[in-house]
Amino acid sequence: MLYTFAQEPAAVASSAVSGGNKSREDQAFREKTRKGKTMGRIIKALLLLVILGFVGLTGYAYLGDLAPVQGEVKKPVVLNAN
C-alpha cells in the first residue's frame, strides 16, 4: 500500500497525460493547498506574542523595582482658626 500525500490523484493522472508539463500544475497545486495556511501562521504568531508578553510582564513584576518610596511627611494643621 503506497500513500502519497504530495499530490491529489487527479493531479497525478493529468500530469502523466500532459507529458511533462509538471511545473505549472505543481505550482497550481501548491497554491491551492497553501490557501488556508496564512491564517494559521497569523494565529500562531499572535499566540507567541501573547505568551512572550505574559512572560515579560511576570519577569518585570518579580525583578522590577516596584517598592514604594517611604518617607515622613509633615504638614501643619490649623485647628479652630477663630
Rank of each mutant, 00 (worst) to 15 (best):
M1N: 11
L2W: 03
L2R: 06
T4Y: 10
T4K: 10
F5C: 13
F5R: 15
A6G: 06
Q7K: 08
E8V: 01
A10K: 11
A11T: 08
V12F: 08
A13T: 08
S14P: 00
S15E: 05
V17D: 07
G19H: 03
G20F: 07
G20K: 03
N21R: 01
S23C: 14
S23Y: 12
D26A: 12
D26Q: 13
D26L: 12
F29Y: 13
R30Y: 07
R30W: 05
K32M: 10
K32W: 10
R34Q: 11
R34K: 05
K37C: 11
T38Y: 01
T38M: 04
M39G: 10
I42G: 00
I43M: 06
I43N: 04
I51V: 15
I51C: 05
I51G: 03
L52R: 04
G53A: 14
G56D: 07
L57I: 09
T58W: 15
G59Q: 15
Y60A: 06
G64F: 01
D65S: 11
D65I: 00
D65C: 01
L66P: 00
A67C: 03
A67S: 09
P68W: 05
V69K: 04
V69R: 04
E72N: 09
K75D: 14
P76A: 11
V77W: 04
V78E: 14
V78S: 13
L79P: 00
N80R: 06
A81I: 09
A81H: 09
